[in-house]
Simulated assay, not measured.
Amino acid sequence: MDIKQLEFFVVACERGSLSQAAECLYTSQPNVSKTIRTLEHELGRPLLMRSGKGVQPTAYGKRVLEYAQLIIRTTITISSLALPDSRNSLCISAYPSNMIAHLLADFYREWGESCYIEHREGTVEEITDDVQQGISEVGIVYVAEKQAATFQHILSHKNLSFVVQDTKKICLYVGPRHPLYHAESVDFSDLSSLKFMRGVRDFFSMEHHLGHVSMGVIDTAALHNVVYTNSDHLNIALLLETDVCSLGLDFLHEPYAQYDIKALPINGCEPFLQVGYVQDAEHTLSTQAQWFVSYFQKLL
């Protein structure tokens, strides 16, 4: 049994026809039929019921189909993890971030085609898993100070370390269509009347820890969230074109401020989010990764 046999069987079931499966797989109908019959012979039972109207899986074939689809999806996922030579690449995981995207563009201008780039976005859990599994060399994260000890404890079991670069406040991001666009700052009491986008749902995400800011004066239950997304593209589009706003880290880098979006300070908000990167505790960062984290620190 091999992946090709399973793929032919799955496509035949999905198309309901051996001829249509052959067209989809860029091969001949006899080849599809022969491959599936070989699989049936190996398993010792028929997988398809064949008729003039096409094919459909037998009861046994339906069970095999579920596992075959799972195997193919898993194979595709594994293939997507294939990387160029790690000695000549920069592999980064981070929250969805326009600033990180611009920094990677700077990296490309500096290193050109001499170095491959792989960039992945996700939650803190996904980012740290990427680093632990060797998919990414560096993971950019931010964590509430009051959760730092818990976070470090979790990382110790994964043999990872968190290198803090700075501690930041949060701010309110608004676009030109927002009624507060011309304001200089906002109060905590203003937030309950606004419409928000909320970011990735993650135990270590900024939103999860807003109750720790200024002795809990932000009531997350009172915030009116109208959009949930982990898309930076959607975040920017809504800020520019609607009256929806978002909470974010107060570290907008001026040279990257290409959009008409303002970061309004929140009066009385103290720094509480540690910003830094996760790395394998036993390995020294590559030259490429060292370049990236040094420039990231300059942005902060």
Rank of each mutant, 00 (worst) to 15 (best):
H153Q: 14
T74G: 09
E14Q: 14
V143R: 07
S33H: 14
Q132S: 10
C115L: 08
L239M: 11
Y259T: 04
T287S: 14
V275Y: 13
P271I: 12
I71P: 01
I100W: 01
M206Y: 05
R201P: 11
S189L: 03
F162R: 06
Q132V: 02
P30V: 05
N225H: 05
G112K: 02
M99H: 03
L70P: 00
C245P: 00
Y108Q: 14
Y173R: 11
G112H: 03
I127L: 05
D190L: 03
T27S: 10
T220V: 15
C171W: 05
F151S: 08
P265M: 04
S33V: 10
E42R: 09
G175W: 00
V226E: 06
L172I: 08
S185N: 11
F188E: 04
T284A: 11
F9C: 03
H41L: 14
T284K: 15
Q274H: 06
P265R: 09
C91K: 15
Y95Q: 07
A148G: 06
I36V: 12
L81W: 06
Y116W: 14
K298F: 12
I92E: 05
T75H: 14
V275T: 06
H209D: 00
L194K: 06
H208M: 06
E241F: 03
Y108I: 05
L90T: 03
E23R: 15
F107K: 02
S189P: 02
E241P: 01
V10E: 01
L273S: 01
D232W: 04
G61N: 05
F9V: 06
H208N: 15
D85C: 04
H102D: 05
L210P: 00
S193P: 00
A237H: 00
Q147A: 13
R63F: 02
Q290A: 08
D219E: 12
F292M: 12
S231I: 00
A237S: 10
V275N: 09
E184L: 08
L90G: 06
F9N: 07
L47G: 02
G112C: 04
L6N: 14
N98C: 02
T74H: 08
Q279E: 09
C91S: 15
E254Y: 02
C171K: 10
G134H: 13
Q279Y: 01
V164F: 05
L285M: 13
G122P: 09
Q5P: 02
S19T: 11
C115V: 12
C115H: 06
E126R: 06
L249I: 14
E145Q: 15
T287L: 02
V141R: 13
A144N: 15
G16S: 13
K262R: 15
R109A: 14
I127P: 00
E145T: 13
S189E: 14
N98K: 13
A221P: 01
I76G: 09
S193F: 09
L273Y: 07
L299G: 06
G54W: 09
D187S: 12
E137V: 09
E23I: 07
E40N: 08
Y108W: 09
A59S: 11
L83C: 04
V275Q: 05
I154Q: 15
Q133H: 12
I154P: 01
W111Q: 07
W111E: 08
L25V: 10
T284C: 10
S80E: 15
S192Y: 02
